[in-house]
């Protein structure tokens, strides 16, 4: 599929950048004229992926988060990547309400939300080298 537009940014693994990342993606996606609900779903999914990179990938230590967005006709692909610790057991991590950090009041719903608020969702991860989340969201307009 031919892409219409593309952007790539990197930013520090800091919690203030959760809001920054979702606003950037929403602003870029606006070119495809999504509905407010589609945009809200996309922002929520992006927020989950960036939060995971900060808390789990980099374990609240300094790091860099890489984000790439590609626009296609009626669809956006968002890739969010960290070079952090990686996920030990992806299948377990995908179980709704499963969390490795209950003491931080994590709900364990991050992956469930990414999955149900987008049209496709993939996790690539290896221990010691990081995690890459690829999400695609279709816009009906």
């Amino acid at each position: 599929m031919q892409s219409i537009n593309r952007m790539k940014i990197e930013f520090d693994s800091k919690s203030t950048n959760e809001a920054f990342a979702r606003v950037v993606v929403a602003a870029f996606a606006a070119q495809l004229d999504p509905t407010l609900e589609e945009l809200a779903d996309l922002k929520t999914a992006v927020s989950e992926a960036v939060t995971n990179a900060i808390i789990h990938g980099y374990e609240n230590k300094p790091g860099t988060i890489y984000m790439e967005c590609v626009l296609y006709t009626g669809e956006i692909m968002v890739v969010i990547e960290d070079k952090g610790v990686g996920i030990e057991d992806i299948e377990k991590a995908r179980i709704p309400s499963y969390t490795t950090k209950p003491e931080l009041e994590r709900s364990g719903l991050g992956f469930s939300i990414m999955e149900s608020f987008t049209d496709s969702f993939e996790i690539e991860s290896s221990m010691g080298s990081g995690t890459k989340i690829t999400m695609k969201k279709k816009f009906t307009t």
């Binding site: 979702r22 809200a40 929520t44 927020s47 989950e48 931080l104 009041e105 994590r106 709900s107 939300i113």
Partner: peptide, 11 residues
């Protein structure tokens, strides 16, 4: 706006 961090806080 609210994501799953809000759910964790509420729970």
């Amino acid at each position: 706006f609210m994501d799953s961090s809000g759910i964790g806080m509420i729970a």
